[in-house]
């Protein structure tokens, strides 16, 4: 399977402000220290090799949207955050090259930041497209229709030309979707959210966002260890520090980098992708959080095999 991150930010899309770009350029110029480059390619290579990611790149600001490539023919996408717009444009390009026009969406939940990309999803206007929305919620269709109502958006849902199907699944059930085994788990979040496990050919990917792990519910913790068990990649909500998640931001429905590492350790997962980044974080803040998480994993690893900790960004691709 191949996982593509189209949107990785939590709660609200963010964009780089001029001063943030200026700071990156300034740091790059200082690092270049008077070097001359014969071409932009040569300069790009220097940047890649010598600058940190927060300087030569950016984590991006689109909200949750992750593609899991690996079905027989169809597209498989987790959530419809603002990253969906870019996915839709790329999917149209791939469809022009012969890709099947079937889209299976797997919804964590229907909060605004996870559906706001749908009104801008170009394939919804393709009369030859089939869009299947999988969810643990009974009200997924209502949420998408309500978002298109005139008070919020000028194009009503019924003007969309694709063929739609809404499928509700029960947690724990294993369903096969175009050759991929999919399992849901219910998560602690306002109005509930659902995590997904995608498995094929002995490989597995977990998508678990907007999930709070409560201090006083260790039975739930054990259930997540089981759900994450031996996963090759766990995409996990790491929006807050553990300290914030148990104090000021308790019951806000999100998890921490610390709990994510401990769950992955207990589950013997192989790779953790930090996800659903706090919208107030700068690129430097996210890079610092990533470095701290890598360090925490080292500090508590003990005799376990190393857990690789990566930090999701808009545009990242991970082969599983």
């Amino acid at each position: 399977m191949l996982v593509r991150f189209w949107g990785t930010r939590g709660s609200l899309p963010v964009a780089q402000r001029a001063e943030a770009i200026r700071a990156k350029v300034v740091r790059a110029l200082v690092a270049a220290d008077g070097r001359r480059f014969a071409s932009e390619d040569e300069a790009a290579a220097f940047a890649q090799e010598n600058l940190d990611f927060a300087t030569y790149g950016a984590f991006g600001g689109a909200t949750s949207c992750v593609e899991v490539e690996g079905a027989d023919e169809a597209f498989m996408i987790c959530d419809m955050g603002s990253g969906l717009r870019e996915f839709g444009i790329d999917a149209m390009r791939r469809c022009a090259g012969g890709h099947a026009r079937t889209y299976h969406f797997f919804m964590s939940h229907m909060h605004w930041d996870h559906i706001m990309g749908f009104p801008f999803f170009a394939p919804a206007f393709d009369a030859n497209a089939t869009i299947v929305v999988h969810s643990g919620h009974a009200d997924a269709e209502e949420a998408l229709r309500r978002q298109q109502e005139e008070i919020s958006f000028p194009v009503p849902f019924d003007w969309l030309r694709a063929t739609f199907e809404f499928v509700q699944h029960k947690p724990g059930e294993v369903v096969e979707v175009d050759g991929v085994e999919v399992t849901l788990v219910v998560q602690h979040h306002s109005h509930d959210s659902y995590g997904y496990r995608f498995a094929r050919h002995g490989r597995s990917v977990i998508y678990s966002t907007d999930s709070e792990h409560k201090l006083d519910n260790m039975d739930s913790e054990a259930a997540f260890e089981s759900f994450f068990k031996d996963a090759d990649l766990v995409i996990c909500d790491t929006m807050y520090s553990l300290g914030d998640s148990v104090s000021l931001k308790q019951d806000w429905g999100h998890s921490s980098n610390i709990v994510a590492v401990d769950l992955c350790h207990a589950a013997h997962a192989k790779k953790l992708a930090l996800f659903h980044h706090e919208p107030t974080y700068s690129d430097e803040d996210i890079a610092r959080m990533h470095a701290e998480t890598v360090r925490y994993e080292e500090l508590v690893r003990a005799e376990r095999p190393a857990l690789e900790v990566i930090c999701a960004y808009d545009g990242l691709e991970v082969t599983v």
């Binding site: 520090s241 300290g243 148990v246 610390i258 701290e292 925490y296 508590v300």
Partner: peptide, 15 residues
């Protein structure tokens, strides 16, 4: 030192 790092990374040094 290890515990001090863990307390800082988790922000428990703020609590």
């Amino acid at each position: 030192e290890r515990m001090r790092e863990i307390l800082a990374i988790s922000r428990y040094d703020k609590l």
